[in-house]
C-alpha cells in the first residue's frame, strides 16, 4: 500500500504534530516500508480468534470514594508553561475565523 506525502501530512495534522517539508519527504517512504513489513499480521488470524487487548484478564478496579490528600495547587502549577490567577494560562482556543 502506498502512503503519499499528503496522507502523512493529514495523519500528522490529526496527531497535532507540525512537520517540515523535509520531514514529510523523509517520513513517507519510511512509514510505507514499516507498514508493508507489519502488514503480514493482517492475514494471520481468522474470525475465530478473539482479540487480546491486554495480558491480564482484568475488570475495573475501584477504590472507596473517600476524600484523600492531593497535590497542592501550587505544586500542580509549578511546571506549567504559563500561569495566571492560580490557573493554567492557555493560548486562545478558537482559530482565526471560528
Amino acid at each position: 500500500m502506498a502512503l503519499t506525502t499528503a496522507e502523512v501530512a493529514r495523519l500528522a495534522a490529526l496527531a497535532r504534530i507540525e512537520l517540515s517539508e523535509d520531514e514529510l519527504a523523509r517520513l513517507a517512504p519510511q512509514l510505507e516500508v514499516i507498514l508493508e513489513s507489519v502488514a503480514q499480521v493482517t492475514e494471520v488470524a481468522g474470525d475465530d480468534v478473539a482479540p487480546m487487548s491486554h495480558p491480564l484478564p482484568l475488570t475495573n478496579v475501584f477504590r472507596a470514594d473517600e476524600v484523600r490528600p492531593s497535590l497542592a495547587a501550587e505544586q500542580v502549577l509549578a511546571a506549567a508553561p504559563a500561569v495566571e490567577d492560580e490557573r493554567f494560562r492557555v493560548p486562545r482556543i478558537l482559530g482565526e475565523g471560528q
Binding site: V41, T42, A45, P51
Partner: peptide, 9 residues
C-alpha cells in the same frame, strides 16, 4: 484488530 488477534495466538 488483526494485531490484537496475533497477540492472542
Amino acid at each position: 484488530g488483526s494485531a490484537q488477534k496475533a497477540r492472542t495466538l
